[in-house]
Design a protein around this nucleic acid. Sequence first.
DNA 1: TACAATTTTATAATGATTACAAATTTAGAA
DNA 2: TTCTAAATTTGTAATCATTATAAAATTGTA
Lengths: 137, 137
Amino acid sequence: MEQTINILKKHGISPSYQRVKIFGYLMETKTHPTAYDIFAKFKSEIPSLSKTTVYNVLSALKEKNLVNEVHIEGHETRFDAEMRQHGHFKCSVCGQVSDLFLTQDLNQILSQKLVIQDIQFNVTGICNQCLTLQNNN
Amino acid sequence: MEQTINILKKHGISPSYQRVKIFGYLMETKTHPTAYDIFAKFKSEIPSLSKTTVYNVLSALKEKNLVNEVHIEGHETRFDAEMRQHGHFKCSVCGQVSDLFLTQDLNQILSQKLVIQDIQFNVTGICNQCLTLQNNN
DNA sequence: TACAATTTTATAATGATTACAAATTTAGAA
DNA sequence: TTCTAAATTTGTAATCATTATAAAATTGTA
Ligand SMILES: [Mn+2]
Ligand SMILES: [Mn+2]
Ligand SMILES: [Zn+2]
Ligand SMILES: [Zn+2]
């Protein structure tokens, strides 16, 4: 909470109630929620909350490089406060999205030399939990 | 043309005029067009063409694994008939999307063992053409 | 307190995609 | 060839995510 506020301040974002809530949530969760997920999560706690505010806050955070967007499938844009270089694994059974790191830098195995600003990668498959469930049936 | 028709037939898709045109285009282009790009490209040649048909054809092709969707940024879904495992490079200056291959299999450098169905990766940066233009100014 | 700037909110607009049902085309039986 | 059923295409309307806009509420400061 205090920590969340400090990070926002340090990046020139004044820590309004909504911003602290949303950014705090993104810092602590690993679920890669969509804008709508975030809206739904806080709607009861902050009844006045507007979907527009969620989008506004997310776009401010993105602007200041405090969150990244994750694009796995068409439509759905997810948000992530984990800013280390990493990719994502989406389970095609349960739909969960988790972080995925590489044992080697992707930069180094690209077939072309290019000026690179960002790398994202997404893997689809079956998570270990769903796999276990499948095997026990 | 004959080739395009054969591939469609082999995959159980009857080669209607629209399907041959759209799939043929996807086979020959490397631009990774959106549904709308495809619609715009053929609208004058096939005046009756409907956007719905473009979506129908694309979803049939996807179903039969003749094309893949490419998701780089939110909104835009692009289509690709290159079915070899590869990733994409999007130039942040000119917006072009090109294929990108790796010198090593991504599978092998994932930090976790997982059942994998699909891998996609997207790199953003500055293409060599835009880089040259920049340096000459 | 008073006032300007910032932030939030509700509502409307936009753009991509899907749903739906009518119109057209195609393929095969008679 | 003609007829008919199935497949395909088409136009329109609906839906969903996101952005635009302007009014309302909040905040910081004189
Ligand atoms: Mn992540
Ligand atoms: Mn490609
Ligand atoms: Zn799972
Ligand atoms: Zn470029």
